[in-house]
Design a protein around this nucleic acid. Structure first.
Lengths: 107, 107
DNA sequence: CTATCATTTCCATGATTATCGAACCATGGA
DNA sequence: TCCATGGTTCGATAATCATGGAAATGATAG
C-alpha cells in the first residue's frame, strides 16, 4: 500500500469520534448503519458526523450505499485488512512482531 | 488497550515524517539509531525531528536511551504489537479479518 | 407538486499541528 | 575550564482540523 494512503488511513482512524464510528460499523457488519443511527449512537451533530464520514470514506475505510431515504455506511473490511497487513509487514521488520496472530491463529 | 491510547498511537503514526521515522527505527532494530542519523536520513531540521520524536515517545512507540553524547531512539515493538492486536480485535469484528496472519503464520 | 425527512454542504470559529530559526542544555575531550 | 558537538526547548507562523448552526440538496410518500 502506498505510504501516502497508509498515512491517510491512519489519520482517518486517529480521531476519537472517527474510531468510534468505525468500530460501530465493524460491529454492524456488512449491512452497515444509517447515518442518523450513527449520529444518535455517538451523540454527534449531523454536520460533524458528515464531516467524519467523509474523512473515512475518502480514506477508503467505509463505504456508503443509499437505501430509500437513508444512507447506510459500512466498514470496508478489505481496506482495514490491507492497513493492518501493511503495518505488520512494514513496521514490524518484515516479519510480524505479533506474538504471532494473536489468539485466533492456531485455534 | 485504552481507546485514548489507541488514538494517540494512531495519531503518532499518521504523519508522513513520523511514519518514516518509525519505519527507519524498525529497520534499525533494537539497537536503534542516533537522532542525528535519523535527521540526516530523512532530511529533517533538528527541531522538527525532535518534535516528532517527542510525539512518538510520548505515544510509547519509541524509546530513548542516552549513549555518550548521542541519544539513540529505538522502536518499541511490544507497543506496536499491542496496537496491531487492538486494531485487529477491536476493528475487525473480534475475529481478525486478515486472511489470517498474512503469509507468515503457518510457515 | 409539495411537504417532509435524511443527509450534506457552506461558513465561521476555535483548537491543534507542523515547521524551523535561535537560544539553550548536556556531554566529553582538550 | 573552555570549546565543540549532539539534541532539545522556546517562540512565532502558517496550515490543517474539528465543531455545529443554518441553508441547500436529494429522496420519497401522498
Amino acid at each position: 500500500m502506498e505510504i501516502k494512503q497508509t498515512v491517510q488511513r491512519l489519520a482517518a482512524l486517529a480521531q476519537e469520534n472517527r474510531l468510534g464510528i468505525f468500530r460501530l460499523l465493524v460491529e454492524a457488519g456488512p449491512a452497515g448503519m444509517a447515518a442518523g443511527k450513527i449520529a444518535e449512537a455517538l451523540g454527534l451533530a449531523p454536520a460533524t458526523l458528515s464531516f467524519h464520514l467523509k474523512e473515512l470514506t475518502h480514506a477508503g475505510l467505509v463505504q456508503a450505499r443509499q437505501e430509500g431515504r437513508f444512507i447506510f455506511y459500512s466498514a470496508d473490511f478489505a481496506a482495514m485488512n490491507n492497513l493492518i497487513a501493511t503495518l505488520t509487514e512494514n513496521c514490524c521488520g518484515g516479519e510480524p512482531c505479533l506474538p504471532a496472530c494473536g489468539s485466533n491463529c492456531k485455534e
